[in-house]
């Protein structure tokens, strides 16, 4: 069983310790839900897991190997959904998704991905005509189009309507059934009722300790 884990992490942002002594562990098929008030470092932790940020202390490991050793290998097994949608206004929905899929070695299933989020009718529409919710659906279709083991979702439900959230729940369940792992920060219900909850409030340093 593969394991994605972090040990004793500590992160500084702008002269302030965001969190310290944080450890997490996510097995294949597992899910981890990040909770905590705004500013407790949910996004920071997700960027740390993606390898965009470096921890001040501690290591993040895939199957025991530090992810910083082979960053491209780590990138190949993760999908990251951040705050920005990265949808190009002059490219059509299909072109947007197939570009990202083409950067990965696996065979892409673009029409299936569009159908999963009910945007197949938008396939040839340029990005500039999409609403915020439709752009979000395109972003989520991007992560389904080419398979990756780890999904890092930072507030994935922003701008989504109820129907799209149901689609997301179904895709997350299917991803986990295939042995994938989901790590998400969200305040909405996305079918992660059985997920392990990591409350970042517990890892804040008090002023005197910092």
């Amino acid at each position: 069983m593969v394991l994605f884990s972090g040990d004793n992490l500590r992160c500084f942002r702008g002269e302030r310790t965001v969190f310290a002594n944080l450890s997490f562990c996510c097995p294949g098929g597992g899910a981890l839900l990040l909770r905590g008030p705004n500013g407790t470092g949910k996004s920071t932790l997700l960027r740390l897991m993606a390898g965009l940020l470096k921890a001040e202390n501690g290591t993040i490991a895939w199957d025991g190997a530090d992810i910083a050793d082979e960053p491209e290998d780590h990138n190949g097994r993760l999908h990251y959904v951040g705050h920005a949608d990265a949808v190009k206004p002059v490219l059509t929905v299909t072109e947007n998704i197939s570009f990202w899929a083409a950067l990965r070695p696996q065979q892409a299933q673009i029409s299936d991905a569009l159908a999963a989020f009910g945007i197949d009718y938008l396939a040839d529409v340029p990005g500039r005509f999409l609403s915020a919710g439709q752009k979000r659906r395109v972003t989520l279709a991007r992560i389904i189009a080419s398979p990756a083991r780890i999904w890092l979702l930072d507030e994935p439900t922003t701008a989504l309507d109820a129907g799209a959230i149901v689609d997301l729940q179904r895709e997350i369940a299917r991803h986990r059934a295939n042995g994938g792992m989901v790590i998400a920060s969200t305040h909405a219900e996305i079918g992660l009722a059985d997920a392990e909850i990591l409350n970042l409030d517990a890892f804040q340093l008090t002023e005197q300790a910092a």
Partner: peptide
């Protein structure tokens, strides 16, 4: 600005 560069840094391509 639109987040594409961040995603490009997270692809298996160096």
């Amino acid at each position: 600005e639109d987040g594409s560069l961040e995603l490009m840094a997270l692809q298996p391509v160096p």
